[in-house]
Design a protein around this nucleic acid. Structure first.
Lengths: 228, 228
DNA sequence: ATTACATCTGAGGGGAACTTGAGCATCACG
DNA sequence: CGTGATGCTCAAGTTCCCCTCAGATGTAAT
């Protein structure tokens, strides 16, 4: 599960990230409210839970929580040193799902993360409905993992879809091979095999638009911009 | 909203009931684990949340929580004097949604009740009738937990229904295995068993529409969208 | 205690998805 | 035009994921 950790202190964040990663979470770290909100834009969302430290440098933590709520329905756990009852009530009423006071026990935090995420329903409801990316005649729906070209559905395998979804996040931008591999395969193993090429080929043929995925010699691949 | 208060001390219960009632809750009081479980039989259910005191006379509070979990998916907030971390973790891992230590601030308790019930699937207050989901020839009634295919009723077990109801919430979207497990089983345990597959199989056969539930290799399952 | 039923577990097998390697095509550059 | 480097195609392996089945365990009713 993906988890967004909002915490300004790098040491604390690093230590906590390590623990969370060891328990199977895919942790993204944001150092400020601004960063956190950027990470939560619809395209790159998909977090199962947000751990929000209230002592942020740039904005009031409560405000950040409110903004998160307006944007997505991702569960939020506030983590803070402020232990007084008013703060807790305030935080919970702003839409936080739980409120944990520092110093906390790591095991309990984990248990609470699980308890909260157990309840949550995958996002998408929050807003304006259509979460589909569109690139010319190609339509990509993240939540349903459905891809269609010219209206007709195309069946993609897991890696194919993940690959396409990654590239589609930023049309026109070149992704390096290693970057693609580490994102899609989630292992830092550097294969010398032809694996990546094979999947790209299969994607190109299934989409029936060989030109959509452009290969950049010596670097990697990219999707042609929606263009014009 | 209806609320089940499980508390053996009549004085405490009366005081708390009064406060809760004043805040708009319809409170039912159970004095023992046995009473609580009886109140939660499917027919008379409909509670939005359960406040569970762990210091019960007849049974261990944790056991009661486990039994509640097997019976319904109503949110549970544990309320207890046991403040040690192990107890808290234990309680949360048993499927409790929150864990509040006595003595607590009433305002905070209220805020936590709201936070928890905010998340719970609306058994659908909307009132206006149609509480039944419809997917092609399959009709699903959340409140009565009845499912029918082509007009004839199909008997589903608890897990089967929960599973179907979860998927039916968002036809077409892919639910990950871990997500399904944590939602339907409501306990943080990473099973290595074939449990999920077995239940899916049983659902497919009972509904007589194997194609309705589509498996997405390497990811999870989804219901085929009503349209196409 | 006995029965009926729901749920869980483990082994086995099938098949889709993934990987790999060798040879071919293409590109950049002299 | 020649050459090496880089990417592509193709057809095998190989892995991994999911399904089935049959029995074990657990739970509720008689």
């Amino acid at each position: 599960m993906r988890l967004l950790l909002v915490e300004d202190d790098n040491h604390v964040a690093a230590a906590l990230s390590a623990v969370l990663a060891r328990h199977g979470f895919d942790v993204t770290h944001a150092r400020s409210g601004e960063e956190a909100l950027q990470a939560l834009v619809p395209e790159s969302d998909g977090f199962g839970v947000v751990l929000l430290d209230l002592g942020l440098p740039d904005q009031d933590g409560y405000e950040v929580c409110g903004k998160i709520r307006k944007r997505t329905s991702t569960p939020v756990i506030m983590v803070t040193a402020r232990s007084d009852v008013r703060s807790r009530i305030h935080g919970l009423n702003l839409g936080a799902d739980d409120y944990v006071v520092k110093p906390y026990d790591t095991g309990e935090l984990l248990a609470r993360i699980h308890a909260v995420s157990r309840r949550s329903v995958p996002d998408d409801a929050a807003g304006s409905g259509d979460t589909a990316l569109r690139l010319g005649p190609v339509r990509i729906e993240l939540p349903t993992r459905q891809v269609s070209v010219d209206g007709s559905v195309v069946q993609l395998t897991r890696k194919e879809f993940d690959l396409l979804a990654l590239l589609a996040q930023r049309p026109g931008v070149v992704f390096r091979r290693e970057q693609i591999i580490s994102e899609v395969w989630r292992t830092s193993w550097e294969g010398t095999g032809r694996t990546l090429e094979v999947h790209v080929a299969s994607l190109r043929s299934k989409l029936r638009m060989p030109a959509l995925i452009e290969t950049v010699r010596g670097v990697g691949y990219r999707l042609v911009a929606p263009t014009a």
